[in-house]
Simulated assay, not measured.
Amino acid sequence: MRAAPPPSTQRSAPRHVLLAVLLALAAQIGWQAKQASPRAHAHDLPPAPSLAALQLAALGDPVALSKATMLYVQGFDEQAGVSIAWRELDYGRVIGWLQRVLDLDPRGQYPLLAASEVYGAVTDPVRARQMLDFVYARYAEDPNRRWPWLANAALVAKHRLHDLPLARRYAAAIRQQATGAGVPPWARELEIFIAEDMNERDAARALIGGMLQSGQITDPHELQFLARRLDQLNADHKQDHKP
């Protein structure tokens, strides 16, 4: 027969000791949970590098670098652990980067689209005007391709900024400079509607008359529309000046 094993010498800890250990562990966990986690800090957008430096870095492919640079700028509002509102960005620096993107690829449209429809949509009127003025400044370099973004800038100036003179200045630039066949009638006529909104009907009549006499408009439907609109304005003018 096997000998019986000797009695165990291990003794369980008293319950009050176990309870004290559990309470201490719970207190430690609670203290750790209350400690503030490290806060992520947003970094400012750095100034845009010189065009010469970017051209050197492009290694003969400025269009590819232009697209990569635009992605960098567009993604800057989302940093690790931080989301930056557009209105908190340094718009002067944002414009500097958009300038460089456009310089690298003058045929690219995205910098002007972003300026007029994204960064220009902020509720801060000062920042919005900065972006709209940037679009206006670069528009004249290629009016027949860049007119959509200036037209959008005119609408932003009219409906969001409630600045009709600014909207008309943008619309006038479209009428005067965007003369290509691909420019739609509504874009050329935008200044007329804004002049009417400003209650400057005489100016609207003069604009329509000038467009009809210029010979630039050849589409019969557009000519018919403008002629009808001019007749209506002339009739209103006579009605307003009846003795």
Rank of each mutant, 00 (worst) to 15 (best):
I95Y: 00
G96Y: 06
G96W: 03
W97P: 04
W97V: 07
W97M: 10
L98T: 01
L102W: 15
L104T: 01
D105A: 15
D105L: 01
P106G: 03
R107N: 14
G108D: 11
Y110R: 15
P111Y: 03
L112E: 04
L113A: 13
L113D: 12
V118Q: 12
V118G: 06
Y119S: 09
G120L: 00
A121I: 00
V122C: 10
D124F: 02
V126G: 08
A128G: 00
M131E: 04
L132E: 07
F134N: 08
V135A: 06
V135Y: 02
Y139L: 06
Y139Q: 07
E141A: 15
D142W: 12
N144V: 03
W147I: 05
P148N: 07
W149Y: 15
W149G: 03
A151M: 11
N152A: 12
A153Q: 01
A154Q: 06
A154Y: 06
A154V: 07
L155A: 12
L155C: 00
L155V: 08
V156E: 06
V156T: 15
V156R: 15
A157K: 00
K158T: 01
H159Q: 10
R160K: 14
L164V: 02
L164M: 05
P165I: 04
P165W: 09
P165K: 05
L166D: 02
R168D: 11
R169A: 13
Y170L: 09
A171H: 06
A172S: 13
A173I: 02
I174N: 02
Q177Y: 09
G180P: 01
A181L: 11
A181G: 07
A181P: 00
G182M: 10
G182V: 07
G182A: 15
V183Q: 06
V183C: 08
P184L: 06
P184W: 07
P185L: 14
P185F: 15
W186E: 15
A187L: 08
R188H: 10
E189M: 10
E191F: 10
I192K: 08
F193E: 13
I194F: 04
I194V: 10
E196M: 15
D197F: 07
M198K: 05
M198A: 14
N199S: 14
E200L: 13
E200H: 11
E200I: 00
D202I: 09
R205F: 05
A206C: 00
L212F: 09
Q213E: 15
Q213V: 10
Q213P: 01
S214A: 13
S214H: 13
G215V: 04
Q216Y: 13
I217Y: 08
I217R: 07
D219L: 04
P220A: 08
H221P: 00
E222S: 13
E222W: 07
